[in-house]
Design a protein around this nucleic acid. Structure first.
Lengths: 247, 247
DNA sequence: CGCCCCATTGAGACGGCTCAACTTGCGTGG
DNA sequence: CCACGCAAGTTGAGCCGTCTCAATGGGGCG
């Protein structure tokens, strides 16, 4: 998509190129308020633009050594963990501009699996280098804290969704959240193509695919959504918001 | 309980006093591998030993400005968040030696509420000071990352529990986890007094108090537990572990 | 002592799961 | 180019686990 750091035209440096960095999926990582041009340069130097990954490719798996965090540049990514007895739990979906991989710092090995839902590209950021640089650039340190805290907040909200909401509330909450994230990327918050299967949605929300399917159908019938496979159009944001609080 | 930093006999300094620091509830925060005596001293200086708090007292509430993180020294603490429509979700329980408050760094205001389940004491650690010191002490920075990552891992596991397990599996998982945390403090992992009500347990696990109660009764009947109000004795760890994977 | 909160236990209702059949879209190979 | 197989999604019927509602028991505190 937006290539931020080919050696020749290193983005995140100056003028119109900085504007490119602004549009870059990394903006949430490399654009913290106080990171000045020089520091952005230093950050750029430690970021590895990794190869594109294809649907089903794993960025890393549970048990592998923790080395890097990743920023999604294009495509979409799913994280999931596997219980001792093989039960899988999808723990998150990551879209362009979002940063993942903060699990596993504690145990030095990753606690979850990360797989591409479609052809995607990511920036790999070796965590040891981030830590070094964070010692010198306080705003970067703060931003990493910020991102991890965001993850914790999101996880807590997810706990509420799983613990307190019925199927309709979960699906509505899920769609409202996706819509907001699409909006943040300056895409339409109304019409979106879901990058994940019904299976993934159900797994994530603690529902069977049948219930997911039935709920989509009902919301369609009630003229809140248009659903055609993975294409979703939100026709009534207000009612969807209401439903996201049900039960 | 263990007072680590009265000005006169400042713990975490040397010799047998360092052993006190080792037993101190803060050990998980102030005992990272590489934090040498001098640095522990510097950490000690920014820690505020706050007053004791009593059952029902709030450490902070959702919406208040984010200022500090807290280490539990004695007692027990509950965190919960409140939805727009007033639905409460207990998001965690914190026991001596555990650190809380990593929510809300992102928004600068706390996202959840923190309340004492019994008379407790905590160490308050102003986050701005932690950030400053982390810039100078890399092992401290790493440890904060570590703690936050641990929280993320725990939250993800909780998502699996809420999403995939039935009542028995949730209760069993909950008890196994508590048992391990009691064990870590060198308390018996078999006999414990639950610091929280059935209401809190149910809310945390996405169950009604009736279901919690019934499940405890069943586990008692099956000779896996002895339950008498908040007193729980685990009689069959193996079977409890099995059950923690049910559904 | 008596009140109130918490916990326990029972009976019935209901939401989501299970099982099963059918549809649709897509890639593969004849 | 069509036939076929396979994966993903949709829809229906019946079942089961948990919730709801209600009554009762017990322990702590004023």
């Amino acid at each position: 998509m937006v290539f931020v750091q080919t050696p020749a035209t290193n983005a995140c440096t100056h003028g119109f190129i900085k504007a490119t960095c602004n549009d870059c999926s990394l903006k949430n990582l490399c654009l913290p308020i106080a990171l000045d041009i020089k520091d952005i340069d230093r950050l750029d130097k430690i970021i590895q633009r990794s190869r594109a990954i294809h649907i089903g490719d794993h960025l890393y798996r549970s048990g592998e050594q923790f080395k890097s965090i990743y920023a999604v540049r294009s495509g979409s990514i799913k994280t999931y963990l596997v219980d001792d007895d093989g039960v899988e739990q999808v723990t998150g979906f990551f879209l362009p501009g979002e940063v993942l991989g903060f699990d596993g710092i504690s145990s030095e090995t990753h606690g979850c699996n990360v797989v591409a839902l479609e052809t995607s590209s990511v920036c790999e950021i070796p965590f040891a280098r981030i830590e070094e640089l964070s010692l010198q650039v306080s705003s970067l340190q703060h931003h990493i804290f910020h991102l991890m805290s965001q993850q914790i907040d999101a996880d807590n909200k997810m706990m509420l969704t799983l613990s307190k909401k019925n199927a309709e509330g979960r699906i509505a909450t899920f769609l409202v959240g996706l819509s907001q994230r699409f909006g943040r990327r300056n895409l339409s918050p109304n019409a979106m193509r879901l990058p994940m299967s019904r299976m993934d949605i159900g797994n994530y929300l603690g529902l069977t695919i049948e219930t997911v399917s039935r709920t989509f159908s009902r919301l369609h019938k009630e003229n809140i959504l248009n659903v055609d496979g993975r294409e979703v159009v939100i026709k009534d944001h207000a009612r969807l918001n209401e439903l996201s609080h049900s039960h």
